[in-house]
Computed example of a mutant assay.
Amino acid sequence: MEFTGSQTIAASREQVWQGLNDAAVLQECIPGCEAFTAENEDQYKAVVVASVGPVKARFKGTLELSGRDAPNGYRLVGQGEGGIAGFGKMTATVTLADAEDGTLLTYVAEAQVGGKLAQIGSRLVTSVANKLAAEFFKRFNATLSAASEAAAE
């Protein structure tokens, strides 16, 4: 399943880039994130609780960043195991561009699920994945816009 989106963030491209590479900011913005720790500069371990229809699970996994082109974007690959609930894998390309009101962040992502999650139905899984992505970027936008406003005062 593929999903895309974009947000205009009221912050400079450099500020948005820094936020996208800050483990604390990412943990704060990921819905259901219980832990998010850097293994090295390009790899993180995460624990995220997510519900998809009747299936609620704690996913433990990794997120790896590659193709960094500061401050223009990168590619990320994530995978998580949710025990009996199954697994999820995701790849995404995030790009940043200057916009009139700050920075335009655009993402194109592809996700795969297996186990009980795959049995739920792709329409529901796609809907939840889109909702989680939208919630992440809404939180990210609010966090970065507030930080940018505070820095300007």
Rank of each mutant, 00 (worst) to 15 (best):
F3K: 04
A50E: 01
S51K: 12
E39S: 14
A35C: 10
N21G: 14
S145F: 00
W17H: 12
F140G: 01
T91D: 05
I120V: 15
A134V: 13
D101Y: 12
E28W: 11
T62K: 02
L65D: 02
A50P: 03
N21P: 11
V94R: 06
A134H: 12
Q79K: 14
A38S: 07
A109Q: 05
G86P: 00
S51P: 01
A147D: 03
A92T: 08
C29D: 00
N130W: 04
A92D: 05
A46R: 00
F87T: 11
P54F: 07
M90R: 02
V108D: 15
N21Y: 15
F137G: 10
A50W: 08
I9W: 04
R123Q: 04
K131R: 15
V47Y: 03
G53S: 04
V128S: 02
C33N: 05
A150Y: 03
E149W: 12
A35G: 07
S51Y: 05
T103L: 01
E110F: 13
V48A: 00
L20N: 05
G114Y: 13
S51L: 05
I9N: 07
I9A: 02
V108C: 06
A92E: 04
V52M: 08
A133H: 06
L132R: 06
V125C: 15
F137I: 09
C29W: 05
A133W: 05
T103W: 06
